[in-house]
C-alpha cells in the first residue's frame, strides 16, 4: 500500500520539475510544421506587378468552390500583371476553404500560396471572405534580405533556375514579319530570356 503511494508520488514529484507540455497559446505560438497550410497570400514579382493573371485555374481546382475571381484586361495605362489579363476581383471564402493547397498546385504563375497565418475566426462570416486587397502582399514586402516575409515570395517560392535553363516561355525578342512581337502572354514576366538561344535577331 505505502509502496504504491510512494511510487505514485515519486512520479508526481518527478514530473513537477519538468516543463509542462502546454503551449500557453495566445501569448506563445507553437512553431508550425514546414508544410502547414494556413491563410492564402497573393504574391507579386519583384517589380511590383501581380503574379496572378486571373486564369481561374485555382477556382477550378478548388474542391470547396471557395475562390471567386473576375478577370479583366490589362491596359498600358494601368498594368497590374505582366500578361494580358489580371484578376480584378479575387475573393477567397475562408469559411468554405478546406486549406488543401490545390489552388497553390494549380497556379501556373505561383501567385497563390498558403502561408502560416491561422488566426482567422470571426464574429461575422462576411469578414471571412478575404478580398484581393487583404490577400495581396504589400509592394516591397516580397523579401527582406534572406528572411522572406512569406514562404511564397520570390526568394523562397521557387528554387532558382539552373545556370543554363532551356527557354520554354516565348519572350519578347525582336520582330517577325515586320510585326512587333507581344510580351510573354502568360506572364512569367521575370524570367530572364535565354542568352544562349541559337537564333539571334
Amino acid at each position: 500500500m505505502a509502496n504504491e503511494i510512494i511510487k505514485g508520488l515519486s512520479r508526481t514529484l518527478r514530473e513537477m520539475g519538468r516543463k509542462p507540455t502546454t503551449v500557453s497559446y495566445p501569448e506563445q505560438h507553437r512553431s508550425q510544421p514546414a508544410r502547414y497550410r494556413g491563410r492564402h497570400v497573393l504574391h507579386r514579382y519583384e517589380n511590383g506587378l501581380e503574379r496572378c493573371v486571373g486564369c481561374f485555374l485555382c477556382a477550378g481546382a478548388c474542391p470547396a468552390d471557395a475562390i471567386y475571381i473576375e478577370a479583366e484586361e490589362n491596359s498600358e495605362a494601368q498594368r497590374v500583371s505582366p500578361g494580358e489579363r489580371f484578376a480584378r476581383v479575387f475573393d477567397v471564402n475562408m469559411l468554405r476553404c478546406i486549406f488543401c493547397g490545390y489552388c497553390q498546385q494549380a497556379c501556373p504563375t505561383g501567385a497563390i500560396t498558403l502561408e502560416k497565418e491561422y488566426e482567422l475566426a470571426s464574429l461575422r462570416p462576411e469578414d471571412l471572405i478575404y478580398h484581393k486587397e487583404q490577400l495581396l502582399e504589400a509592394v516591397g514586402e516580397q523579401h527582406h534580405g534572406d528572411n522572406p516575409a512569406t514562404i511564397g515570395s520570390n526568394t523562397a517560392w521557387q528554387p532558382q533556375p539552373p545556370a543554363d535553363p532551356p527557354l520554354t516561355i516565348p519572350q519578347q525578342r525582336g520582330t517577325f514579319d515586320g510585326q512587333a512581337a507581344s510580351a510573354a502572354a502568360v506572364g512569367q514576366g521575370n524570367l530572364i530570356p535565354d542568352p544562349s538561344s541559337p537564333i539571334q535577331d
Binding site: 532551356p166 517577325f176 512581337a181 538561344s197 537564333i199
Partner: peptide, 10 residues
C-alpha cells in the same frame, strides 16, 4: 521545337 515562336500583335 526550342526556337522562338512567331508573334503578332495581340
Amino acid at each position: 521545337f526550342d526556337l522562338k515562336k512567331r508573334h503578332f500583335q495581340k
